[in-house]
Design a protein around this nucleic acid. Structure first.
Length: 619
DNA sequence: GCAAGGTC
């Protein structure tokens, strides 16, 4: 019997279907000489410190540097504390039984670093010695799967990939566990002060933005505004220059020759520029972009959106949700017209679906090279039935985005008129000539509200128009906004782009901080630690969060660059570089950060202890 | 009591 092991049940079932295996067993599917089984993501995790004899949180244990890491079955939180997840235990038993019977093992976990690790941890935990082959595919279509099985690779081809994954895993443990205990202990062990490669830079981003706003000193500046009259149609123009000094603005303001002051034709048109601007449709959604949209439209947290989407996925209404790709391959694209056809009766989108069913579909989101482990989120074509309001809202965002993505460009006409009236003024106007994809949700531009001139009158250069109103505007420079979940998710995705070092920036170009699957959990962790709170839709640091930030802000652990450095080294390991060198570096860094935190955390608790409620102090 | 990673 050949055993195929997938990362998750949905993929295992899909593979079984392609082979025509139909006998459903508990935890696997059998048929045609194969058994198809699966994990549920990581079934195993690195054992916690106490399993190496580091009982209790004690200064003398630090740094904790296990000679050899142990694996343990994934735990879940219950009222009795952490216990082995019974579902995971059961599935591992099933996998063990199948491996024992296997004549051949075929690894079909996701084609990536973590997919490799998911399998290898199971394989080594079960002490399996049988050789295995690797299925490596980036598309789950029947043809891609068949082709992949005709081209199975020797398992050992991916040994270096496993090495890099293994290093990632152990390094996160070493740095995270040690830094967390070091800071918590030196601050007086009153509460858990967690630190980690991802959560701490994320906290730092939130805190530094908050402080930047708090310390922001608004600057006054002045603008001049005039209103002109073209044959009865009024429109507004603003001075091109801003003025720091009020006197300067007042001087120019006095020179504006308006009707009230006895000048019937005070504004002279200098230039008129009208050009069309084409807006391509947005790309299909990946998890992050959908979380951002759901946060903006409905105020859902990243975690809520992920849960709703997981529910839709389990009901087979949408494709795999934790994807980082906004593209689909040509094979998936071939099924899109059929998906669109099924929406013709939809109450909101029917008309657009009808239109698209005869139009040429835009292929901006079609690019097989940009499909990584999973493609962009699409509806499956199954008909939803009695969804909850929130689920329906998410489902509609997926469906609506699909229609948008394959729709036509939106064509706008942008008009710019410059006017001389003592100084130079400019009027901007935007008119939508052809709504294209924007007709799906029929909403105006959500990013920027265009100035008050939706459409400007037809004027010609050289024309002189009466100025019917003028105003001297006093304005203030504004600080950046606080992070909310949408802007934070975006910042996490792109955090690598701000890195100055070119190599580190390159190493992070496809990753950012965290992964699509983990970012929602990171936000929740920061909230659970009482480092940040939600205030309306904003994410605001607490006194505790700011105090922790103050201790670590100049340390490597608070910089996104740390992930960049790791990614660069991990990629080198994948290409065959020494594992021992990297491990030595990490061990070294673990010692350094642990010692530093044991010193610098002293006195930290006093900074926020008074803010804590008595009930929380007791524990 | 603790990381980050994956998933139900």
């Amino acid at each position: 019997m050949k055993i195929v092991i997938a990362e998750k049940p949905s993929v295992g079932r899909e593979l079984a279907k392609v082979f025509g295996a139909t006998t459903k067993k508990d935890g696997y599917i059998e048929g045609k000489g194969y058994s198809f089984t699966w994990a549920f993501g990581h079934l195993l995790q690195l054992a916690p410190p106490q399993e190496y004899g580091f009982i209790g949180w004690r200064r003398q244990h630090l740094p904790m540097l296990p000679k050899k890491f142990k694996l343990g079955i994934r735990k879940i939180k219950t009222k009795d504390g952490l216990v082995e997840d019974p579902g995971v235990r059961k599935q591992l038993d099933i996998i063990k039984k199948l491996f024992d019977e296997a004549t051949e093992i075929i690894v079909a976990t996701d084609a990536g670093r973590e997919g490799e690790l998911i399998f290898r941890y199971i394989y080594y935990f079960l002490k399996c010695k049988k050789p295995f082959k690797r299925l490596w595919i980036s598309s789950q279509t029947d043809e891609a799967i068949k082709e992949g099985f005709r081209n199975l690779k020797p398992g050992t081809d991916y040994d270096t990939l496993f090495n890099s994954a293994h290093c990632r895993s152990e390094s996160d443990w070493l740095v995270g566990m040690n830094a967390t205990q070091a800071l918590s202990i030196s601050a007086g062990s009153r509460s858990v002060l967690s630190l980690g490669r991802v959560q701490t830079p994320t906290l730092a981003m939130i805190c530094s933005r908050f402080l930047e706003i708090k310390n922001f000193v608004p600057q006054l500046y002045y603008q001049l505004a005039i209103q002109l009259d073209k044959d009865g149609q009024l429109f507004k123009a603003i001075s091109v220059n801003n003025f720091d000094k009020k006197e300067e603005a007042e001087e120019l303001f006095a020179k504006i020759e308006d009707v009230a002051a006895g000048f019937p034709n005070g504004g002279k048109i200098l230039t008129v520029e009208a050009k069309p601007r084409k807006e391509p449709p947005p790309l299909l959604h990946d998890l992050s972009s959908l979380q951002q949209e759901a946060n903006k439209r409905k105020g859902f947290t990243a975690d809520q959106t992920l849960n709703l989407l997981q529910g839709l996925y389990e009901s087979k209404l949408v494709t795999y949700p934790r994807t980082g790709s906004r593209y689909i391959g040509d094979d998936v694209f071939a099924g899109v017209p059929n998906l669109i056809d099924k929406l013709k009766d939809h109450k909101d989108f029917g008309k657009q679906a009808d239109f698209l069913s005869t139009a040429t579909l835009n292929k901006r989101s079609v690019n097989a090279k940009k499909v990584t482990d999973h493609h962009a989120i699409l509806p499956t074509g199954e008909s939803p039935y009695q969804l909850s309001g929130d689920k329906q809202a998410i489902y509609d965002m997926v469906v609506g985005r699909m229609l948008e993505a394959f729709h036509q460009e939106c064509i706008k006409e942008i008009t710019k008129i410059t006017i001389e009236a003592g100084s130079v003024f400019m009027a901007n106007g935007t008119v939508i000539r052809s709504a294209g994809w924007r007709s799906v949700f029929n909403e105006s531009d959500d990013d920027k509200k265009d100035e008050e001139n939706p459409s400007l009158p037809k004027v010609k250069a050289g024309e002189e128009l009466p100025i019917v109103n003028k105003a001297l505007l006093e304005k203030q420079t504004k600080p950046k906004s606080l992070y909310n979940e949408a802007s934070l998710l975006k910042a996490l995705e792109t955090s690598g782009k701000d890195i100055e070092d070119e190599e580190l920036r390159y190493a992070m170009k496809d990753s950012g901080l965290g992964t699509p699957a983990t970012r929602a959990a990171i936000i929740e962790t920061l909230i659970n630690r009482e480092y940040i709170v939600r205030e309306k839709r904003n994410l605001v640091p607490t006194t505790k969060g700011l105090a922790v930030y103050d201790v670590v802000k100049d340390q490597k652990i608070a910089q996104a660059e740390l992930t960049g450095q790791w990614e660069k080294r991990l990629e080198e390991i994948r290409s065959g570089a020494s594992v021992a060198d990297f491990k030595a570096e990490i061990t070294d860094y673990t010692r350094t950060i642990t010692n530093e935190l044991l010193q610098s955390g002293t006195g930290l608790a006093e900074k926020f202890a008074k803010e804590e409620k008595p009930a929380e102090k007791v524990s």
